[in-house]
C-alpha cells in the first residue's frame, strides 16, 4: 500500500508483501484516516508511517492503544539538508568549499520540510516496530509533546530540542540535557560546523585496509 509520496515502484520491484505490517497499517488508517500522508514498507523488515503535524499526538495514542505498540523506543529528529560543509569524502588536501545547498532528498515515507521528527514504538505481541515520522515546518517550529503517550519521551524530547531546536509544546521541563548552558547552536543541524575540522581536515580518508578474504586484489597492492 503506497501513498502518492512513496512511489509505487517500490512495490513493483519487491513483489513480496508483508501481511503483518499491512495489517498494522490498515489499523492505523482506520484510526487516523487522512492524517496519514505517507507510508513505506520494506517487506519483512520495517514499516514507516508519516502523519500530519496536527495528528502527531493522536497518532501516538493510536499506535499505543489501538495497535498495541506499548513499548517506547525513541523520539528524535532528522535534518535533511545536505551538509554545506561537504561529506566525509573530502580528501585531506581538498579545501572545504561552501557550496550552495543541494536539493533536499527525504527518505522513506516522503517529506516536505527540512526537518522531520521521527519516533519509534515496539509491540511485543506482534514482534515488530513502527517508525512514525512527522514534518516540522520551519515557520512553526514546534510539535505537541509525546509525554502523555509515553512517559519516557520526556528526555528524548529534551535531547531533540537541544540538538535541533524543535520546540515541544506542553513539555514541562524543556531545558538542555547535555550541553553546558552557554553553548550556542544546535549541533545536529547539518549546517552546524565542526570547527576542529575546519582548522584541520580529516586525516582518516585514506581508508583502504585490505579486506580479509579479498585475495584477488592483494596482488595489485604489491
Amino acid at each position: 500500500m503506497s501513498s502518492p509520496e512513496a512511489p509505487a515502484t517500490e512495490e513493483a520491484e519487491a513483489p513480496v508483501t508483508d501481511e503483518v505490517r499491512e495489517e498494522v497499517l490498515a489499523e492505523l488508517r482506520e484510526d487516523l484516516g487522512d492524517a496519514i500522508v505517507g507510508t513505506h514498507i520494506v517487506p519483512g523488515q520495517d514499516l514507516w508511517v508519516r502523519v500530519t503535524k496536527d495528528a502527531w499526538q493522536q497518532a501516538g495514542f493510536a499506535l499505543r492503544d489501538g495497535a498495541g505498540f506499548k513499548m517506547f523506543e525513541f523520539v528524535s529528529a532528522i535534518d535533511w539538508l545536505p551538509s554545506p560543509w561537504g561529506k566525509s569524502e573530502d580528501s585531506p588536501t581538498d579545501e572545504v568549499v561552501e557550496t550552495e545547498p543541494a536539493e533536499i532528498v527525504t527518505g522513506y515515507a516522503g517529506g516536505d520540510t527540512r526537518f522531520q521528527v521521527f519516533a519509534r514504538a515496539h509491540s511485543q505481541t506482534r514482534k515488530m516496530g513502527v517508525t512514525l515520522k512527522v514534518d516540522v515546518p520551519e515557520d512553526d517550529f514546534s510539535l505537541p509533546t509525546w509525554i502523555p503517550v509515553f512517559a519516557g519521551a520526556n528526555w528524548h524530547e529534551r535531547e531533540t530540542r537541544e540538538m535541533f531546536g524543535i520546540d515541544f509544546v506542553g513539555h514541562p521541563h524543556l531545558v538542555n540535557i547535555y550541553l553546558p548552558g552557554e553553548f550556542e547552536g544546535h549541533p545536529l543541524r547539518k549546517d552546524f560546523p565542526l570547527l576542529a575540522r575546519h582548522v584541520k581536515p580529516w586525516p582518516g580518508i585514506v581508508d583502504i585496509e585490505p579486506m580479509p578474504g579479498d585475495e584477488s586484489e592483494e596482488g595489485e597492492e604489491g
Binding site: Q45, W48, E89, R120
Partner: peptide, 28 residues
C-alpha cells in the same frame, strides 16, 4: 535507504537507525 536494527546488549536494547544517502558515510 533507512534501516533500524536493535540487539539485546548487556545493558538492554541498543538500536541504530541508519539513514544512508548513498555516500561513503552515513547521513544520519
Amino acid at each position: 535507504g533507512e534501516a533500524w536494527v536493535a540487539t539485546e546488549n548487556p545493558l538492554g536494547e541498543m538500536g541504530y537507525y541508519v539513514v544512508s544517502q548513498g555516500g561513503l558515510g552515513p547521513f544520519r
